[in-house]
Lab assay of single mutants.
Amino acid sequence: KLPPGWEKRMFRSNGTVYYFNHITNASQFERPSG
C-alpha cells in the first residue's frame, strides 16, 4: 500500500508507470516508501 496521497499512474504515450501525490502535487518514478 502506498503512503497517504500517493497513487500509481501511467503515461498513455509510452506506458511508463509513475507515482503522483495529489496532496503535494509531487510526482516520481520511484515507488514512495512509507
Rank of each mutant, 00 (worst) to 15 (best):
K1G: 10
K1P: 14
K1F: 10
K1V: 14
K1Q: 12
L2H: 00
L2N: 01
P3N: 00
P3Y: 02
P3M: 02
P3E: 04
P4I: 07
G5H: 07
G5Q: 02
G5I: 01
G5A: 03
W6N: 01
W6Q: 01
W6E: 02
E7F: 05
E7Y: 03
E7N: 03
K8H: 05
K8V: 15
K8M: 14
R9E: 06
R9I: 07
R9Y: 06
M10Q: 11
M10Y: 14
M10L: 11
R12L: 14
S13N: 10
S13Y: 06
N14E: 08
N14R: 06
N14W: 04
N14H: 08
N14K: 08
N14D: 13
G15E: 10
G15V: 00
T16D: 09
T16S: 14
T16F: 07
V17W: 06
V17E: 13
V17I: 13
Y18E: 07
Y18M: 04
Y18K: 03
Y18A: 01
Y19E: 03
Y19R: 00
Y19T: 00
Y19G: 00
Y19S: 00
F20Q: 04
F20I: 07
F20D: 07
F20G: 05
N21H: 05
N21S: 05
H22D: 07
H22L: 15
H22F: 14
H22P: 09
I23Q: 04
T24K: 02
T24W: 09
T24M: 01
N25P: 01
N25S: 09
N25L: 12
N25K: 13
N25T: 05
N25D: 07
S27D: 04
S27N: 04
S27H: 13
S27Q: 09
Q28F: 02
F29I: 13
E30Q: 07
E30W: 05
R31G: 03
R31T: 08
P32N: 02
P32A: 02
P32T: 02
P32F: 01
S33M: 13
S33Q: 11
S33A: 11
G34E: 13
G34R: 10
G34D: 13
G34Q: 11
G34N: 12
G34V: 11
G34L: 12
G34Y: 14
